[in-house]
């Protein structure tokens, strides 16, 4: 094999994972939880009968774990996708100095959001 002078493949791998997650799953999540349910398009009188919400409230079930793992996967990769893009976005907009600091800040923010998501999903919810 060969050696390269950077860990970029790791960050890019997360970025690409996020690109797929966002493209595949965020539209439907936003559609359901941002538009359909708040917009009254979902009929059930009691919203906690919606499967996802219901499963989140069933800590002991396999479905609960699957939903949590799924949401964690989608959101954490979304955050790292953001971090990667945002770091280049700042560069594109003219912030050419302190690239390393910007990288640390962006990926740290994504890490923090990821931890927060894990705690929310697996500890609190």
């Amino acid at each position: 094999m060969y050696k390269i002078n950077t860990n970029e493949p790791f960050w890019w791998g997360l970025f690409m994972g996020g690109a797929g997650m966002i493209g595949m799953f965020l539209p439907v999540l936003i559609l359901v939880f941002g538009l359909a349910i708040p917009g009254g398009a979902v009929p059930p009188a009691s919203y906690d009968t919606v499967r996802l919400i219901h499963l989140l409230g069933q800590p002991a079930s396999v479905g609960n774990l699957l939903v949590k793992v799924f949401l964690f996967g989608v959101f954490s990769l979304t955050f790292f996708h953001w971090a990667h893009r945002f770091r280049y976005l700042l560069f594109d907009l003219g912030l050419h100095g302190g690239r390393t600091a910007v990288e640390y800040l962006c990926y740290s923010a994504a890490l923090a959001a990821t931890i927060y998501t894990a705690v929310t999903l697996f500890v609190i919810a």
Binding site: I4, P9, G13
Partner: peptide, 13 residues
């Protein structure tokens, strides 16, 4: 090339 390098990187890790 990014994709291939990333595959190689994760494999080697």
């Amino acid at each position: 090339t990014k994709l291939a390098t990333t595959n190689d990187w994760f494999k080697s890790m």
